[in-house]
């Protein structure tokens, strides 16, 4: 086993379609044993990136590798990478089992494997039905079954939760967690963070073909904490207030000063800030609590929603990791 085994590495990948730069110098890495969410709004370049990873679309520049090799260089690639790209790539006249039997010879597995994977995704009873009559959720399950044919180490799923009912999403979540727990690499794309929020360990967020954020979900969640914005005409008073709040009374609080006379405090309640201001005798003109959820943060990161002055803000103070805010706290 090499160090790259099971790793997906996207390295300075770009794709130009005519005048449109669909993927722009994108780099990220996906690790085994974890579920990674590949997130971005529709049209951000997710599918194009995945198709380049799978040798279906040729990159304009850069490389994408699985276990250190390009997809097209892997002999019998379905044993290394299982991929499901869209729920529509089935011949409507074929049964679910026949769809798998068509692929089995080239994947390099016996026909009995087809029934095994159908059982894994809960489609045994529908094995002989034509795919044309399948619901979107059943097609997603069949796509997932297809990826498992070769028992691959790496799974690449494009929008697998699309069209699933809540029950189906819960099932998918448990299934993907299970696959990752077996040590597999699971890369799942979605345009809705909340859809995969409870499934993924890591997130790779892109917008307009570019990487905007890559971290563990926990780190992303830390950016999405509640913030309290206070404004005061009394600059010195504001500093005293910030020191009082940040220094001791509420450990873990982070502070940023986006503009003169304004402070944004994270990890504290508005009531605590108000009480501290009263105790310190600081005149406040604004005391506002803002709950930045993960989804809001995601939309701000991807530019779907304009940042509203409060953090987090792309490239602004808000998206600075907590350590930066702590430095500011020291300065303050």
């Amino acid at each position: 086993m090499t160090t790259t085994d099971g790793h997906v590495v996207v390295d300075h990948l770009s794709k130009r379609f005519g005048a449109v730069l669909a993927v722009d110098d994108l780099s990220f890495e996906v690790r085994p044993g974890r579920v990674t969410g590949f997130l971005g709004p529709n049209g951000a370049g997710k599918t194009t990136t995945l198709r380049m990873l799978l040798g279906l679309v040729s990159p304009t520049s850069g490389t994408a590798t699985v276990s250190g090799r390009r997809y097209t260089d892997i002999p019998r690639p379905a044993h290394v990478v299982g991929a499901a790209l869209e729920a529509a790539s089935f011949h409507p006249g074929r049964s679910a089992r026949d769809h798998l039997r068509v692929l089995a010879p080239q994947v390099g597995v016996p026909d009995s494997r087809c029934d095994e994977v159908l059982a894994l995704v809960g489609l045994t009873d529908a094995a002989d039905r034509r795919v044309g009559g399948f619901s979107l959720g059943m097609r997603q399950r069949l796509g997932l079954a297809t990826t498992l044919l070769g028992d691959p180490r790496v799974l690449v799923l494009d929008e697998p939760a699309n069209g699933l009912d809540p029950e189906g999403i819960a099932w998918l979540r448990a299934f993907l967690r299970h696959l990752a727990a077996e040590g597999r690499t699971v890369l799942v794309s979605s345009h809705v963070l909340s859809e995969v929020q409870q499934t993924v360990d890591d997130v790779v967020i892109i917008a307009r073909g570019r990487l905007v954020h890559a971290s563990s979900l926990a780190e992303l969640a830390r950016l999405a904490r509640r913030t309290v914005r206070v404004a005061s005409p009394d600059q010195d008073g504001l500093r005293r207030l910030v020191e009082r709040v940040a220094g001791g009374s509420t450990p873990g609080a982070a502070v940023s000063l986006p503009e003169p006379g304004v402070a944004v405090l994270e990890g504290v309640e508005a009531a605590a800030v108000g009480a501290a201001a009263f105790a310190a005798g600081v005149e406040l003109h604004e005391l506002a609590s803002r709950d930045v959820g993960l989804e809001d943060l995601f939309l701000q990161l991807t530019g779907e929603r304009a940042a509203s002055g409060a953090p987090p803000e792309p490239d602004g103070p808000g998206t600075r990791p907590v350590a930066d805010a702590a430095t500011e706290r020291g300065a303050a």
Partner: peptide, 12 residues
Amino acid sequence: HMTITPTLLAEP
């Protein structure tokens, strides 16, 4: 039917 996608995934 876009089965060319799984076809080329199984045999690039």
